[in-house]
């Protein structure tokens, strides 16, 4: 069907997008790799000495790196655990017949559309503030000592904020997947006297497995790069308690102006993200039949 002529036209139509993305990926990334081998600090102009892997060995042996790596894993793992378990339960609940289903869906999905800086500041000030926050008011009403969330449990607080933003995403995707589940199969298992639990574990959960994998992978990509929530609430502190890899690289390069060190950190982040990306790409690729 496709003639040589139309193939040439198709290639022409495709090329701007390919060239732009190629440029976007290759130019800055190769610059980052190049910078990562230099002694390059914006505060010391003129010095661009090649120092081999010194930036990497500095970055990778810095205690801040291990703290950040650990925090990144906790943040990603914590948010994933909350959103997947919560999302599955919520999706099953929302899939039941009820009154006002459309409105409940709208209420549940809303946090996903709240920009990260707004969500984080509202949580930090209006809810978690130990003096005037709503949680403090509630604690006082119950005769308890108000809890200073961002000082006592900073990382857990940020995990909570980020989970609030991503729970709607997981719920919505799992709900969509759930709606494609064959009703007759569910009814048949009910007829055969299967308990709700065995129906859940033998029919619903296997059906959701694929959607859960997709949610895990996509969220991981975004969660590895959580930044705004940390910037406006804790600035990575106290100490390094809430510094993740993304924030560490930002602080190294744009706050301490250490371009070389920051670049090495950026490359480490790229490698970490790639490990996840490979799995995600395989999943999506398998599903793409051309």
């Amino acid at each position: 069907m496709a003639t040589t002529h139309s193939r040439a036209a198709a290639r022409l139509m495709l090329s701007p997008a390919v060239l732009l993305l190629l440029g976007w990926m290759i130019i800055p990334l190769s610059m980052t790799i190049y910078f990562s081998f230099l002694h390059y600090n914006l505060l010391i102009p003129g010095t661009h000495d090649f120092i081999g892997f010194a930036n990497y060995s500095y970055f990778l042996t810095d205690p801040a790196f291990f703290a950040a790596l650990f925090n990144t894993l906790l943040l990603v793992g914590g948010v994933l655990a909350i959103t997947i378990v919560g999302g599955v339960l919520l999706a099953i609940l929302l899939d039941q017949p009820m009154w006002g289903q459309g409105i409940v869906r709208i209420l549940v999905i809303a946090p996903f559309f709240v920009m990260p800086t707004v969500g984080a500041l509202v949580w930090k000030n209006m809810f978690m503030n130990p003096v005037n926050g709503l949680f403090a008011h509630m604690a006082k009403a119950l005769g308890l000592q108000p809890f200073d969330f961002l000082a006592q449990a900073p990382l857990a607080s940020i995990i909570g904020m980020v989970a609030w933003q991503w729970l709607p995403f997981a719920t919505l995707i799992l709900l969509t997947a759930l709606q494609s589940l064959d009703r007759e199969q569910l009814e048949a298992s009910e007829m055969d006297g299967a308990s709700p639990f065995s129906t859940f574990f033998y029919i619903t959960l296997p059906h959701l497995a694929r959607a859960i994998t997709v949610v895990v992978l996509i969220q991981t990509i975004f969660l590895l790069s959580v930044f705004a929530e940390i910037l406006v609430t804790t600035n990575g502190g106290p100490g390094y308690a809430t510094t993740n890899i993304t924030y560490l690289v930002y602080a190294q390069s744009l706050l301490q102006f250490d371009v070389g060190g920051g670049s090495a950190g950026g490359i480490v982040a790229v490698i970490l993200a790639n490990i996840v990306a490979i799995f995600l790409m395989r999943m999506i690729g398998k599903n793409l039949d051309i």
């Binding site: 997008a17 390919v18 993305l21 976007w24 990926m25 130019i27 800055p28 990334l29 610059m31 980052t32 910078f35 990509i221 590895l224 790069s225 930044f227 890899i245 993304t246 690289v249 930002y250 390069s253 744009l254 371009v259 920051g262 670049s263 950190g265 950026g266 490359i267 982040a269 790229v270 970490l272 993200a273 790639n274 996840v276 990306a277 995600l280 790409m281 999506i284 690729g285 793409l288």
Partner: peptide, 17 residues
């Protein structure tokens, strides 16, 4: 698939350049 892979590039990897 390659286009998709560019989306997976963490922004800090290209922030400085």
């Amino acid at each position: 698939m390659w286009m998709l892979s560019t989306k997976m590039l963490p922004p800090v990897g290209v922030l400085i350049p």
